[in-house]
Design a binder for these strands. Structure first.
Lengths: 204, 204
DNA sequence: GTCTATACTGAGATAGAC
DNA sequence: GTCTATCTCAGTATAGAC
């Protein structure tokens, strides 16, 4: 039956979102979906591949929306560089809209990002989109050395991931939270580069 | 033998730091330490309790240093509130000094923080120290609503955790990285609170 | 092509002999 | 204190029913 696959996807999406990936066993999923254990491996190959397909399905429209928003911002900016705030909005608002409909999925993706060890199948799916946003940030912050830029974006990702880990946004208003994130992260990205004086200070 | 316990601790600390907690099996640890499987449960009770004891041992001097630095900053500030930068330095510099000596441990703690699901034994150990820093931040940023303050501190923790996840600081200079973090996070914490206009914008 | 029953390997945990 | 044997449960693999 074709509905077996959907029943697995639905149950897995809910349980992964509620309990996390590692804490949800395949036997828990099949009990919830009312299917046989081997059906998962028949349809998805492995637990990890089940996760990858799940995330891709939900991330696809979000990432498409992100790239479209960045395209539009760049078109509006013309030859000038897009502002940090516009870049962050292009990245965050499509995700916030999706989060309003499906908070569990957002929470799971935040947790996956946070765990650091994202399955290759997910990472490779996000990479092209992320690369475009890194390039936009590089143009918006030309004074930052490359290493510092990449680190600051990584720190920004941490702020976003921890925000996504929260069970729910205040009053369920994910767009408000996204705008708060834009303010916080742009404040961090715009901070003056710290003077390299650490070693001097320490020996005092 | 008393050295059995130490052999387990040493092997576990190294392997957890290199491979992560979940990816390191007890059988891997005993092979490395040259002890019996049941010895771990005799000395520590469970894999999780082994982790808790490990982290506590390394975190104790760091947290003591953090509180001492905050005490000193508050003494110097007198009746005035301590600046955000001073608070962040008190929190980050003791950890950076420890990270210079033991990068793997720092990485493991970053990963544990990031995973969101910190064992209760670790969380309860950090809570009193964290509460003091939250109180200091509340005084330093009195204009922020409480909910917004807590969320911004959470986002700050995300930036720190992702920074700690990096295999190594640039040129192994953890103090320089800590100062960059102070600049980034204080920029985020100091950002003007976003106007609640999200709902208006969306309907456009 | 789909799905079920069953078995395999390795994980953490435990009881009891020494 | 230490070790052997064993238990339960995880993800995985496969043979075969329909």
């Amino acid at each position: 039956m074709i509905e077996t696959k959907d029943k697995i996807l639905d149950a897995a999406e809910r349980l992964f979102g509620e309990r996390g990936y590692a804490e949800t066993s395949l036997r828990h999923i099949i009990a919830d979906a009312g299917v046989n254990l081997a059906a998962i491996h028949y349809h998805f190959g492995s637990k990890e591949d089940l996760l990858v397909q799940l995330v891709r399905r939900r991330a696809e429209p979000i990432n498409a929306g992100r790239l479209a928003a960045l395209d539009q911002a760049e078109a509006e900016a013309g030859p000038a560089s897009v502002s940090v705030e516009k870049i962050l909005e292009a990245f965050l608002l499509p995700a916030a809209e999706a989060a309003a409909k499906r908070p569990e999925m957002t929470r799971l993706m935040g947790r996956l990002h946070a765990e650091g060890c994202i399955p290759p199948g997910i990472k490779s799916y996000f990479t092209p989109m992320v690369e475009r946003f890194i390039a936009a940030a590089r143009r918006a912050l030309p004074h930052l050395p490359e290493e510092e830029l990449l680190w600051r974006l990584r720190a920004s990702a941490g702020a976003m991931a921890f925000t996504m880990l929260e069970p729910h946004a205040p009053q369920g208003d994910y767009l408000a939270r996204a705008r708060q994130l834009v303010a916080f992260v742009s404040g961090g990205l715009r901070a003056p580069a710290s003077v390299v004086e650490a070693k001097v200070e320490v020996t005092q």
